[in-house]
Every structure is written in structure tokens, then in C-alpha cells.
Amino acid sequence: MLRNQLLSKQRKNGKINLETILERGKQVRILFVGDVMGKPGQEMLKQYLPLLKRKYQPQVTIVNGENATRGRGINEKVYKEILKAGADVLTMGNHTWDNPELQTFIGRAPKLVRPANFSANKVPGQGYTIIKVNQLKLGVVNLIGRVFMNPSDDPFVIGEALIAKLAKQVDAIFVDFHAETTSEKEAFAWYFAGKVSAVVGTHTHVQTNDARILPGGTAYLTDVGFTGPYDGILGMKRANVIERFLTQMPTRFEVDTESQTTLGACLIEVDDASGKAKSIQTIQINPDHPWLD
């Protein structure tokens, strides 16, 4: 397969040591960074994404950007800044349409993927994209859950059709499953175990401690965490959120711009020949988990 093709080409030109080619051909590294939250998240990403890429040398970097502009949605300026910081693809979630500006540029944003089960074929944008990594093709899919979320099409039904379609076109498939409950995320991952390379959850903003490889070679993590204010509540100012719980009265949630910051991510290694995940590790950078290069 891919490794044999690389070796054949290498033998013809003799430019690189065969052992080096064998090592490079064994895996594809995918770096996934969780929900970027407002300006603090943008700054954290700009500071640490280059360092993460230098340390882990991923071939593909995916960033969830659904909270990137003022905590709700994304605009074109921030979309371009995240790409400039080092992202190859941006995924979204339930706040996709909260910034109306997205509708004006999503049609010319090939590296932005919104949930594929948003009223299928009736909203702008794309639910997946394909990234080329040397001779390998990686499908990046975004889907949203339905439990405690706004109405959407069935992610299992839409996902099954989309994944079956992509399986004929790509060598590996990564899924950002944006959902509220652990049970829905686990059910989705087990349903597609062995059919995709990875299912990683977003939305709840708290990194979970359950990274594993499911039978069939599917990397799984319930939630990758988020990138933004560390001392807020899910990135929002604490006082406003607490007041809501105490009074049940409508409260304006605002991104905590004076907080310490955090970055949540994971690194997945996928076998280039089989498309199966070999490993998954979580990454946190914050005052309690300082960056160590």
C-alpha cells in the first residue's frame, strides 16, 4: 500500500535512507485542539499551536472554532487567523450560526466544516472535507448530537451514509462529534468502531480521562476539552453563571477575558496502511499543567 509505494519510489531516486522512509510511513499524526473560546482562546492557540506542532510534528492539525469569536460562532477574520496559526481544518458545532457573518463567507471557506447533520442539503457549507497527506487522504467529518441540543438530523443515519461514502475515497476518517452527553458520544463511537480512525467529542469544554483505542482501531475520547479562559465556568465569567443557578433568571453570559488560560487537545497516531488508530494521548496546557518542551 502507501508504504510500499514510498519504498518503490525511493529505490528509484535513492535520495533518502530506506529506514527513514519506513519510519515515516508507519503513522500519520493528527493533532486536534478543542473549542477555541473568544479572544483568550485565540491568543492561547497562537502562542502554543506552533510549539505543539514543533514538538509532536503532526501531519494534520484540526481545530474546533465554534466559539472562537466572542464565544459564539466565528467570523472571517478569526477563521483566517486560526488557519495562519497553523490549523489545516476548522470544525464547528451548535454555535455555528450564532455569528451571522459566517453565512457570508462559508461558501468560500473550504477548510471550514460545519455539522453534516444540520438540515442536510438545506444549509450552506460542508459537513466534511478531505485532506491530502502526501499520498494518504484523510476525511474530516463534523457531526452534532441531539440529546439536550437544538433539533438536527439523526447523526447516526447521516453519519452512516457519509462514512460509507468516504470509505471509498479516503484512507482514514476523523470525526469531531459535537454533543452534550457522554452516553450519546460513547454510543456513536461504538456504533462506528472499526469504520473510522477516530471519534473525538467536543462541546462540554472539560477534558475527559477516557482516551482509548476501541476494537477495530478507532481512537476515542469523550471530550477533548477547550481552549480559553481557565478560571471561568466553561469559559464564561463565573458571577453571571452562578447568578443564573441561584435565581433561574435570564443572565447575559460573557467570555471571561481576565482569566488565566488553558488549551485542551489530543494527538492521534493512525497507521497509514490500515487507517486504524495506533494511539491517542491527551494534552493540557494551563497553570496546573504547565508547558514542558
Results as ranks from 00 to 15, higher is better:
residue 120 A to T: 15
residue 14 G to R: 14
residue 104 T to S: 15
residue 221 L to G: 02
residue 186 E to T: 13
residue 2 L to E: 06
residue 171 D to T: 05
residue 6 L to H: 10
residue 100 P to E: 06
residue 200 V to S: 06
residue 115 P to N: 09
residue 117 N to I: 12
residue 279 S to P: 02
residue 214 L to F: 01
residue 110 P to K: 13
residue 114 R to S: 08
residue 142 N to K: 07
residue 136 L to Q: 12
residue 278 K to S: 09
residue 267 L to E: 04
residue 268 I to Q: 08
residue 155 P to D: 12
residue 215 P to L: 09
residue 102 L to Q: 06
residue 269 E to W: 02
residue 43 E to C: 03
residue 7 L to Y: 07
residue 73 G to A: 06
residue 267 L to I: 15
residue 215 P to M: 02
residue 214 L to W: 01
residue 291 W to L: 13
residue 232 G to Y: 01
residue 14 G to Y: 02
residue 222 T to G: 01
residue 97 W to H: 07
residue 243 E to G: 12
residue 207 Q to G: 05
residue 70 R to V: 05
residue 153 D to A: 14
residue 79 Y to G: 09
residue 189 A to M: 03
residue 158 I to K: 11
residue 75 N to S: 13
residue 184 E to R: 11
residue 145 G to W: 02
residue 12 K to W: 01
residue 95 H to G: 10
residue 128 Y to A: 09
residue 204 T to E: 04
residue 165 K to L: 09
residue 289 H to N: 15
residue 233 I to N: 02
residue 156 F to Q: 06
residue 172 A to T: 03
residue 190 W to P: 00
residue 118 F to A: 04
residue 233 I to A: 01
residue 163 I to E: 05
residue 115 P to G: 13
residue 166 L to Q: 11
residue 104 T to Q: 14
residue 88 D to H: 15
residue 124 P to Y: 08
residue 5 Q to K: 10
residue 102 L to M: 14
residue 182 T to E: 13
residue 6 L to N: 03
residue 172 A to D: 00
residue 105 F to T: 05
